[in-house]
Design a protein around this nucleic acid. Structure first.
Length: 949
RNA sequence: GCGGGGAUAACCAAGCCAGGCCAACGGUGAUAGACUCAAGAUCUAUUCUCGCAGGAGUUCAAGGGUUCGAAUCCCUUUCCCCGCACCA
């Protein structure tokens, strides 16, 4: 062992030793196996603190399980499929200043190197190497022989095979779906492509097809149920509407709506223009009820929202009510309207508790909204909507829908109306405008002939739920979230035109979407070892995969089809049978709603139940000095930076002990430095222990030795239990911090001879968390690798309750003395202890009996006490103590009566004298001595009386 | 809006599911003392308020309730974080 703790030297030394000796390479054997995987990182940047947390949790579990004697397979690979890497390479070529900044400053890539990363392949190669280096410099116990990247040709074959299976199961279908689209770039846009409107979601409006003669004037609404309550339509008189041919119909919509329609899956042709004012005064027929309603002018109608025509439901929509009211006394003869609008009867169709017939009117009155231009009109709308949506029920005038909750009706009506030709669905952004980085206003585009994974399939879904039910989730609280998300999951587009990836085998112009190609790749780790060793890959055919992963067909058949020799085929199959299924997948919580769900879906589809994953563990994010980390805007802490600045073990210990489960961890420099100091202390204590020639391990065990060994068993048990539940923070509390404090007490009490024994267990307890420093210490302690040494097992026979109670009594007594000294501020000359008299112990015993037997009351207790001759002699003092016991009946400690306190304190007299630096006397309250200030009478079991001179 | 999770002393953070040994583990920071020529390291103590004898009071987002007893159980309110997709 070196004199000084030098993380850098120790860490690189052991990393090399592990790698050179293949310490973490796993092969099947007779042991029980444990297959642990973590989502591979995407290769568009360096690994950061977030990865560090997830991966380090995984590594510590892998190391723990290995030490528990399991055969652990912990592999790693890299994700490159999808669009971002392609986009990144273009931006690098164009020397995009933003990207340049992010990658040189946040990711720490030298400019001269960054400029060479001008193709996707070079980016992949660079980060693949960088990530691997980073994972090695933090000491992950990965079997690197199985590494791969998702753009490797053999991996493509594997994905093709998988998609063939899904297609065979009819889980892949064709359809259309709406996307955010930039008309200028002619591409779907993602959040980072946007200048404005990142928060906009795509909402489905119903276009209700009102009719003017044969022409359709569609009204857009998010509340299709209100079609029952329409009393007029609204058109903006200042807008020039478009008469257009839409499929086989003639539609009248705003010009903006026309523009949007051209991006939908409809055949659209421009016809003529018609001014809004010309439409006003006409009658339109409600396609559902057949009623004719008047078209009226309204300034609040936004041509850029929906179709530019709005149905008016004044009973439930404050805007409609206000607009109608505003017209009551207006002269509308210019539109040819002569009738009195007051004759238009409002139609109520929703009953909601707290509201009467016309909620819109009530809301308007309540908020004192003046007219349709009043800003409070918006508030009134929201108020009515919220209440009606949550508590509203449809009235009898809605026919067969009567009685249905408003919150449940939308999807039903959309389905019924579109089927009946009454309405169509129209997609629109929830907020506008949405603007692309190129400056163009984005639209909702309907992508046609898109390939979908049918995640909505009921059979598939129920199998996934069944799989989930059989899985262990850590922490268990996330189960509801998983169930909810499975319920919510809809069909997912699974192919793209752009990016890196595997082509759909039956439709080569499509690339398989990058989340869909990352679902069952854990199985591929088994094959990757052989591919990396030079296995022929050009002929990897479905038959081959069918055999090695599913056992379909025969080894001979697979060998024949591929030209791979039979022995290898059989070996791969045997490997797979040994390692699969996945025993644990640990991941950040961001992947719950996507990757982890798909992971389950695809496993369930491809594999039989016995190969479904066994468990998932979820962890939270990492923030930096309380600020959210951002890969593109900073702050960002890369794994390399963290390890370079602080060392691998410090980084690991810090990130593992900082938070647990789904809680977010906060990376703070001050804390990291403190942790480094703690490791330093650990190292020094180990070094001193190992070098201490005076330690006599064969010496007879003293009280404090027995205590130390006893407490060690508890720590081992706690750490073990914690690691079984993947609670790294809790495990470290026991294995590191508590044990550290125990050792301080041990040494303070003069303990020494058990130090080596404790250290031996301690190093192994710490090894999953801080493996390098542990290897270094272990090397001086024994032989072999600490990483492969057996995890300590708690020995119940070494638990010595008596010894622990003695120390508790001492701690309590010392604390009491200190408190007295603090309060009185006296400098002691002598300290006298009086231990409790026998009769009090007897009385406590009686009280305990009564408590267990049910009720403890003074009467019974005193009666029994007086029957006991030991107690009855003290009949003057007994009632007082009895009273106290009866009061504190809930917290009586049996332990307080099982220790001979006089003997203990007498024995530890010299220690107590050393602690306080003054002479100490110990008396029993039973022995008549000088009782200064009557203190001796205060002595109770568990609490000796104290007198300080 | 919907769904999930949270709010604990200067800060981070246990405890809550299984109510009482909880003024509340542990760490950090701060203060004091010991050691040292000194610094650092280490060790010890203190760190809600009051208290010259080991005590008392007020706390666990806010308000209400259940209970002999609540940080823990129930109800209401406020605030915070995450996801809501075709993007990895």
């Amino acid at each position: 062992m070196q004199d000084e703790y030098s993380a850098r030297e120790i860490e690189s030394k052991w990393q090399k030793v592990w790698l050179d000796n293949g310490v973490f390479q796993a092969e099947p054997d007779s042991r029980e196996k444990f297959f642990l995987t973590i989502p591979y990182p995407y290769l568009n940047g360096n690994l950061h603190a977030g990865h560090t947390r997830t991966f380090t949790i995984g590594d510590s579990v892998a190391r723990y399980k290995r030490m528990r004697g399991l055969n652990v397979l912990f592999p790693m690979a890299f994700h490159a499929t999808g669009t971002p890497i392609v986009g990144l390479s273009e931006l690098i070529v164009n020397k995009d200043p933003l990207i340049w900044d992010v990658y040189t400053k946040l990711h720490g890539i030298p400019p001269e190197i960054l400029s060479t990363l001008n193709t996707p392949q070079k980016i992949v190669d660079y980060f693949r190497r960088a990530d691997q280096e980073a994972m090695q410099m933090i000491g992950y116990s990965i079997d690197w022989r199985r590494e791969f990247t998702t753009t490797d040709p053999a991996y493509n074959k594997f994905i093709e095979w998988q998609y063939g299976i899904l297609r065979g199961l009819d889980y892949i279908t064709k359809g259309s779906h709406p996307v955010r689209w930039c008309p200028h770039d002619r591409n779907p846009v993602e959040d980072h492509d946007l200048l404005k409107g990142e928060d906009a979601t795509i909402m489905d409006f119903a276009l209700i097809k009102f009719k003017i003669g044969d022409e359709i004037i569609p009204c857009a609404t998010l509340r299709p149920e209100t079609v029952f309550g329409v009393v007029n339509l609204w058109v903006n008189p200042d807008v020039n509407y478009v008469v257009a041919r839409v499929n086989d119909e003639t539609w009248i919509v705003s010009p903006e709506a026309y523009h949007k329609l051209t991006f939908t899956d409809r055949q659209v042709a421009y016809g003529a223009e018609i001014s809004g004012s010309k439409l006003i005064g006409k009658k339109a027929k409600n396609p559902l009820t057949g009623t004719e309603v008047l078209i009226l002018p309204a300034g609040f109608v936004d041509p850029d929202n929906g179709s530019g025509v709005v149905m008016s439901v004044p009973a439930h929509a404050p805007f409609d009510y206000l607009a109608l009211k505003d017209l009551y006394d207006k002269d509308l003869s210019q539109y040819g309207i002569t009738e009195d609008l007051r004759t238009i009867k409002l139609i109520s169709l929703i009953s909601a508790p707290g509201y009467g017939e016309f909620p819109a009117i009530e809301a308007v009155n309540e908020l004192k909204v003046i007219d349709q231009n009043d800003s409070k009109a918006e508030e009134a709308t929201k108020m009515v909507y919220r209440r009606e949506f949550h508590n509203g029920v449809l009235k009898t005038n809605t026919g067969k829908y009567a009685g249905t909750a408003v919150s449940k009706i939308k999807d039903v009506l959309l389905k019924d109306f579109t089927k009946g030709g009454i309405a169509e669905i129209f997609y629109e952004f929830s907020e506008t405008p949405v603007i692309c980085r190129c400056g163009t206003k984005c639209v909702v585009m309907m992508v046609r002939d898109q390939w979908f994974l049918e995640y909505s399939d009921e059979t598939w879904k129920s199998e996934v739920l069944q799989c989930l039910a059989g899985m262990r989730l850590i922490p268990e609280e996330i189960r509801t979230e998983f169930v909810n998300k499975i319920d919510w999951l809809k069909d997912k587009a699974c192919a793209r035109r752009k990016g890196l990836g595997t082509h759909l085998p039956w439709d080569k112009k499509w690339l398989i979407e990058s989340l869909g190609d990352s679902t069952i790749y854990m199985a591929y780790y088994i094959l990757a070892k052989y591919v990396n060793a030079g296995l022929k890959i050009d002929k990897l055919s479905p038959e081959f995969f069918e055999y090695i992963f599913l056992g379909h067909g025969t080894a001979d058949g697979a060998a024949e089809a591929t030209g791979i020799d039979l022995k290898t085929v059989q070996e791969i199959r045997k490997d797979f049978e040994y390692w699969y299924p996945v025993d644990l997948r640990t991941s950040g919580k961001d992947l719950i709603a996507n990757h982890l769900l798909f992971f389950l879906y695809h496993h369930v589809a491809v594999f039989p139940p016995e190969l479904w994953p066994k468990a998932m563990a979820i962890n939270g994010f990492v923030s930096l000095e309380s600020k959210k980390m951002s890969k593109s805007k900073g702050p960002l802490l890369t794994l390399k930076e963290a390890v370079g600045d602080n060392g691998a073990d410090t980084t690991r210990l810090y990130i593992l002990s900082n938070a647990e489960y789904t809680q977010d961890a906060d990376w703070r420099n001050e804390g990291v430095q403190a942790v480094h100091g703690q490791l330093d202390r650990f190292y020094n204590l180990a070094k001193e222990t190992i070098g201490d020639q005076s330690i006599d391990e064969s010496a007879e065990m003293t009280q404090i030795d027995r205590w130390m060994i006893s407490v060690l068993q508890c720590r081992i048990a706690e750490a073990t239990e914690s690691m079984e539940g993947i609670q790294t923070r809790r495990a470290l509390q026991s294995a590191f911090y508590h044990l550290f404090n125990d050792l301080r007490w041990y040494q303070r009490r003069g303990g020494k001879n058990q130090l080596k024994k404790v250290l031996n267990a301690w190093v192994r307890l710490m090894c999953p968390f801080t493996p390098h420093i542990c290897e270094e210490i272990w090397f001086s302690l024994g032989q072999g690798y600490a990483s492969l040494a057996p995890w300590p097992v708690a020995d119940p026979s070494l638990i010595d309750e008596q010894a622990e109670r003695v120390e508790e009594l001492l701690v309590r007594t010392i604390n009491d003395v200190e408190e007295i000294l603090k309060v009185t501020k006296v400098a002691p000359n002598k300290i006298i202890f009086y231990t409790a008299p026998v009769w009090k112990v007897e009385l406590l015993g009686l009280a305990m009996e009564f408590t267990q037997g049910g009720k403890l009351d003074m009467g019974h207790l005193m009666k029994a006490a007086m029957a006991n001759p030991v107690i009855s002699v003290h009949k003057k003092d007994a009632p007082k103590y009895a009273q106290k016991l009866a009061k504190g009946a809930h917290s009586l400690r049996a332990e307080d009566m099982e220790l001979d306190e006089f003997q203990v304190l007498s024995r530890e007299k010299s220690y107590l004298e050393k602690e306080f630096g003054v002479p100490v006397e110990v008396h029993s309250a039973d022995e008549p001595t000088e009782d200064k200030l009557g203190k001796a009478r205060q002595a109770e079991p568990g609490r000796p009386a104290i007198f300080i001179e």
